[in-house]
C-alpha cells in the first residue's frame, strides 16, 4: 500500500496553483486527501503529479452573510465548518449533515469543497449542495466562473469542472424565514458511508401551512437526488398519508442498488422510513423556527 512515484508541489497562492495546473493537466489537486490518498496508496489510481493547495491561505475563509448564505474556501475542513456557530445559525442543515460525515479524524482533515467536487452520491455534502441550491466557484488561468449544483453533478464521481479548473469556494444559501430542516442517515457502523441518508427542507406560509417540501437523498442514486414532495401535502398539513405518499413519490425518483452491505429493497425501505422521519422533523423544525421568529 505505497503509492507509485509522483511529483509534488505546494504553491502558496492561487495564481501559482492555477498556473501549475494549467501546465500539468494530468495533475490532481490535493486538499484534505481523504479519498485521493487511499486510492493512490492502494494503487487504484495513478497520479503523476500532485498540486497541494493546503498552503494557499486565501482558500481558508468562512464568510457568513446574514440573510444571504455561507461561503467557504477550498481548504476549509469539515470540522471547521461544523463548529462554525454563525454558519450553523444561517444554514442549520450544513451543521446537521456535517455531523454525519465520517469520523472526527476524517472531518479534521477532509475539506467540504473537496467532498463536493469528489461528487460521490454517497457523500453528504454533494447532496446538501443540490438540496440547498448551492453554487461552486471554480477558477483557472482563464478566470473564474460559478456552477450551480444542478449543473455541477453530471455523473457518478463526475463534475462539470473543465481541465485546469480548481474549485476555490462553495456557497450555500441561508435558510429563509419560516423554513425548517432535518437530516438523518442510516449506516452499518457509526461514521460509515450511509446505506441511505435523507435531508429535508420544509417551508411554511405565514399561517403555518406547508408551502414547499424538498428532500435530498444520499446513497440511493447515481448523482445527488433531490425530490420536490410539496404535492404530497395538498392541504398544507403534515399528515400520515402525506408522509406515506412522499416516501413513495421519492422512491420513483431514486435508483437504490444492492451491494455487499444492503439489498436494493432494503435501501428502498430506508429511503421510505427516513423520508417520513426526516420530513416530519423538518416540518417540526420549521414550526419551531417560525414561532421563534414571531416571538423575536
Amino acid at each position: 500500500m505505497k503509492p507509485a512515484a509522483f511529483t509534488y508541489q505546494r504553491p502558496t497562492t492561487l495564481t501559482q496553483a492555477l498556473a501549475a495546473y494549467a501546465a500539468a493537466p494530468e495533475a490532481k489537486v490535493l486538499a484534505g486527501g481523504q479519498s485521493l490518498i487511499p486510492l493512490m496508496s492502494m494503487r487504484l489510481t495513478s497520479v503523476p503529479e500532485l498540486i497541494d493547495i493546503n498552503g494557499i491561505e486565501e482558500l481558508s475563509h468562512i464568510h457568513v452573510e446574514r440573510g444571504q448564505g455561507v461561503r467557504f474556501g477550498a481548504i476549509v475542513r469539515h470540522a471547521q465548518l461544523h463548529a462554525h456557530a454563525e454558519a450553523r445559525e444561517v444554514q442549520p442543515l450544513l451543521h446537521a449533515a456535517l455531523s454525519h460525515v465520517a469520523h472526527a479524524t476524517i472531518r479534521n482533515r477532509g475539506t467540504t469543497v473537496g467532498s463536493i467536487v469528489h461528487a460521490d452520491a454517497s457523500g453528504e455534502m454533494p447532496m446538501i449542495m443540490s438540496l440547498l441550491g448551492g453554487t461552486l466557484t471554480v477558477a483557472s488561468v482563464e478566470g473564474r466562473r460559478e456552477i450551480t449544483a444542478e449543473d455541477l453533478f453530471i455523473g457518478p464521481l463526475e463534475t462539470s469542472l473543465q481541465a485546469g479548473e480548481i474549485a476555490v469556494e462553495a456557497f450555500v444559501p441561508a435558510l429563509p424565514a419560516r423554513h425548517g430542516v432535518a437530516f438523518d442517515e442510516i449506516a452499518r457502523r457509526h461514521g460509515d458511508y450511509a446505506l441511505c441518508g435523507v435531508g429535508a427542507i420544509v417551508g411554511l406560509d405565514a399561517d403555518g401551512a406547508i408551502e414547499h417540501v424538498r428532500a435530498g437523498y444520499v446513497s440511493v442514486s447515481e448523482t445527488p437526488a433531490v425530490v420536490d414532495l410539496t404535492g404530497c401535502f395538498p392541504d398544507g398539513e403534515l399528515t400520515e398519508q402525506g408522509l406515506k405518499d412522499a416516501a413513495e413519490l421519492a422512491l420513483t425518483h431514486l435508483e437504490p442498488e444492492a451491494d455487499i452491505h444492503a439489498s436494493a429493497e432494503y435501501r428502498a425501505q430506508l429511503a421510505r422510513t427516513l423520508t417520513t422521519r426526516v420530513v416530519a422533523a423538518a416540518h417540526a423544525d420549521a414550526g419551531a423556527r417560525a414561532n421563534a421568529e414571531v416571538t423575536a
Binding site: 492502494m42 457502523r189 457509526h190 460509515d192 455487499i260 452491505h261
Partner: peptide
C-alpha cells in the same frame, strides 16, 4: 468475507469489512 463467485474478496479493506467500532 464477501467473496464473489470468482473468488475475489470484495471487502478486503477496513472500509468494507465491518469490524465494529467502539460505537457498535
Amino acid at each position: 468475507m464477501a467473496y464473489d463467485e470468482t473468488g475475489q474478496l470484495q471487502n478486503a479493506s477496513f472500509m468494507d469489512f465491518l469490524m465494529p467500532y467502539v460505537t457498535e
